[in-house]
Amino acid sequence: MSESSNTPPLSLSPGQWSFTRWNTIGQLEALEVHHPLFEATVFLQGAHLTRFIPENEPDWLWLSPDARFEPGRAIRGGIPVCWPWFGDPERNAPEVRKRIKTPNPHGFARTSLWKLEDVRETAHEVEISLSLNANDDFADLWTGHALALLTYNFSVRGCQLALTTTNLSDGPLALSQALHTYLPTTDITRSRVLGLGYSHYIDTLKNWEYCTQDGPVYFEGETDRIYESGEPLTVVTPGASRKLNAVGSDSTVVWNPGPDKAKTLSDFSNDAWQTMLCVETANAASDYRVLNEGQNHTLGLLIRRG
């Protein structure tokens, strides 16, 4: 999925990197990329990307001004990794739900410390890979054994993520997951998502009723929908357009808290809902995945200019 180049990528040790540096932000360790063509920040906690800034452009991601960078606390904004389950455990399929031992939503990956596997740099791109071994250390939260490998590829053409899960358990493993992408807008009421027309979706705000999308998705207050679609999307906001291409996904979550829900969220100001929206590449609801022993699955996302 990487951009082709005549220059072979270099796998380098810390200190040999040309564009990537360690930094401590708040109480968390992060990798900061300062490439001539783009900048990015990836935290080891959650393998969490919080910014991607191509040269001479604004940040492609939204990060809450109230975000706190503390151990065990999910970062509000960027691209949180929801894994090995998405959303409320009780709203997951029985095969996924039976493994979960906590009422907490969205799994444990986004607050866990991931291991840096590799940094590869060229004149055109930077690739960062991190892993999380979900073994007996998580036995109080979840029953299972799996390896998550998340690779980020940054280039002038865009930002690409590939989250590969390998089942290390002795039997089948069911999971749900999402790349919970926060995107910025200057005005949520003048923003829309194209590519979901005529898709069926679950409206979680209407008692999980099944509906059919008619035309673009507009935001008129709180929105929380699980679409049965993994088709390419375009997010149009005043002054910007982004294309989102998914891999290994047949479900997409579209979310904005609206004014009332915003008041209940942590690390989120009361009016922040007006400047962001989430379009999440997912395996959610009926799109959960079952991996046999040793089998793997990749959930991927490419964000590029519209």
Rank of each mutant, 00 (worst) to 15 (best):
F86Y: 05
L132F: 02
E90H: 12
F138W: 09
R120N: 12
F86K: 03
T122G: 08
P103M: 05
R91T: 07
I128H: 08
N92Y: 01
G107D: 07
A93W: 01
I75M: 13
P80E: 03
L132S: 09
P105T: 00
P80Q: 05
P103I: 03
E121G: 09
A109N: 00
E117P: 01
D137P: 00
P89R: 09
K98R: 15
N135I: 10
F86L: 15
A93S: 13
S131A: 09
L132V: 01
D88F: 01
R97G: 00
P71C: 08
R68P: 01
V126S: 00
H106F: 02
D140W: 07
D118R: 15
W114D: 01
D136M: 02
T122F: 10
E90F: 10
E90R: 13
P103D: 11
D140P: 03
T111Q: 12
A93T: 07
C82Y: 05
T102S: 13
R99D: 08
G77W: 06
L141V: 11
I100S: 05
E127H: 02
V119M: 05
R91K: 13
P80M: 06
R99V: 15
L132T: 04
R91Y: 03
T111A: 05
D140A: 09
G87W: 12
R76I: 00
G107M: 04
L130Q: 13
A134C: 13
T102V: 15
P71N: 07
W83I: 00
H124T: 15
A139M: 09
I75P: 03
R120T: 08
R91L: 08
G77P: 14
P89F: 00
L132I: 04
E95P: 06
A109D: 03
G78R: 00
H106D: 04
A139L: 12
S131C: 12
A123N: 15
E127M: 14
G87F: 15
P84N: 06
A67R: 08
P80R: 00
P89Q: 03
N133H: 08
G77A: 09
W85P: 11
T102Y: 05
S131W: 05
P94C: 10
D118Y: 12
E90V: 09
P80Y: 01
E117H: 04
P84E: 06
I128E: 05
D136I: 01
K115L: 09
D88A: 07
A123C: 07
A123F: 10
N133I: 02
P80L: 02
V119K: 01
H124I: 14
F86N: 03
W83G: 02
R110H: 08
E70T: 12
G87E: 10
G72V: 10
